[in-house]
Every structure is written in structure tokens, then in C-alpha cells.
Amino acid sequence: MTWSSRLKLVVGLVVVLAIVGACTVVFTQRQNSARSASATITAQEYSVGAVYAGTVVDQAVTVGDSVTTGQRLFTVRSPQLLRDLEAGVIRPTDLDQVDTTAGTYAVVSAVDGVVASVAAPVGDFVTSGAEIAQVDKTGSMGVTAQFTLTARDYGRIAKGSAVDIQLPNDTTVEGTVDAIEVETVDGRAASTITIASPNLVSEQIGGLYRPGTPVVATLALRDDGPFAGVADSFRDFLRRMGL
């Protein structure tokens, strides 16, 4: 064998080893992460309810409006409230913005946030304790994501694990695992993971940053070594072969 042939052989081996090494690194990286089956932005929801049964006679906000703590959202007229006021069962200061002549009171927001839904518009009769609207609290946005994981991969996640959250505009924000719920289905862990993200918390609710917005969550699994993914996959292959 000539020296030129030997040189070509060495170069060829180096190239093959480099390709195999690169493929191994890529494969291992893929084994160290999991992509969500589905994921959406969520926020803490606060219910706004009627204290006294009555008719909604005024609506001061609509879905999507920003509100502050104590802001009037609705006015309810209640004959029962009027009777209780006359009988001295309740004082005007016990409720918000009571009109002792008309027998009305205000339903106010308990938190700063955005009106998410209205269940009882003007003209609707509501019972005591019935929900009139819901408010998404400002500064409470996070992500809820579903993952289908093998038992081994489920053991490689923990509270505080890093998560990349990709928004519909391809912007990526960082988050961490805050809570994990799991149900075993066909030998796989169907996991619902709550993700906390300071980036989402600092955003105002609206546009892309609103509850229900679909996102893609990529969960970082614990790295059990540079060839852990390859070794695990090889063992799984041998197991399937009955070896």
C-alpha cells in the first residue's frame, strides 16, 4: 500500500469517526429533552359572584378589559337586599356601593387583572353566590403542558427542571417546572406539568400573552452521562429483540 493510499485511508477514518461522533452528540441531545404533546398559557382565575340574588342592571366592563382591585364591574338590584336593609339585618357598609333607595349593590373585582368571561350580562337574574364573571389575575401567567414520557424519562424530570417555551411568533422564553401530575397510560407516563416563567409573569395579559394561547414546551431531562441516551436506546432495542 502506497503512502498516498494510507493517507486517504486515515483521512477517511477520521471523517467517518467525526460523522459518527456528531450523530451521537445530536442523538444524545435529542434523548435529553422532551417536547410537549400540547401546551397553553394559563393564569389564575378569580370568580366574581353575586352576594344577594337579583337582576344585573348595569355592566361596566366587557371581556378583555383591564380592571383593578375594588373596581365596580356590575350593579345588581335585589329586592331581598332592600328588605334586609329596612329590617336592619344588614348595613349599607356591609356591601360595596349600596344604594338604599334602589336596593342595588356593586359587584367589584377582587384582584388586578383582565376580564376573562361574563356569565350574566345586563338583564340576567342571578342567585346568591352565582358567578357573574371571571377575572384573570395580573402577574399570574404560566404554562400548563402535557408530556407523554417513558418511565425512565419521567424519572429524569424534577421540580425546577428547565423548560423552553416557544410562542406562536417563534419567540422563546425560559421557564422551570413548578408542579408535576402523572397518570400511567399503557406503560407510559402521561404527565401534566405546570411551568413557571418570570418572563410571562412580567407581561401584561393580552395579544399573544393571554390564557389559552397555544405554545410549544421543550422540557430538559436530567443528563445521565454523554452516552446515556445511546445506551438506553440500545438496551431498549435488545429488550425488544428478546435478548
Rank of each mutant, 00 (worst) to 15 (best):
S117V: 04
G123D: 06
E174H: 07
L208T: 08
N199C: 06
D153A: 01
Q146E: 15
T172M: 11
V185A: 08
E203G: 09
V115H: 01
V143F: 09
K159N: 11
V173Q: 05
V126T: 04
V111Y: 10
T176Y: 06
Q204V: 05
V118W: 00
G206Y: 09
A162V: 15
Q166K: 15
G175P: 02
V201S: 05
A189W: 06
A145Q: 02
T172F: 07
G129T: 12
V114C: 03
G206W: 06
G142L: 02
G187R: 09
D164P: 02
A110F: 09
V182E: 07
T144S: 15
E181T: 11
T176E: 12
V163Y: 02
E203D: 06
D112G: 07
M141L: 14
T138D: 11
A145N: 04
V126F: 10
E183V: 14
D112T: 10
T144E: 13
F125N: 14
P198Y: 07
I195R: 00
S140T: 15
I195N: 00
L200N: 02
A116C: 10
Q204N: 13
D153L: 05
E131H: 07
L208R: 09
T192V: 15
D186S: 15
A110G: 15
D164G: 07
A110D: 14
V185I: 15
T176A: 10
I165D: 04
T184D: 09
T172E: 11
T171R: 11
Y154A: 03
S161H: 13
R152L: 13
Q166V: 15
V126R: 01
A189F: 04
E181W: 04
A162C: 08
T184I: 13
T194G: 14
T171M: 10
D153R: 01
P198G: 13
A110T: 08
P198V: 13
A133R: 03
D112F: 05
Q134D: 11
A133D: 02
G187S: 08
D153Q: 11
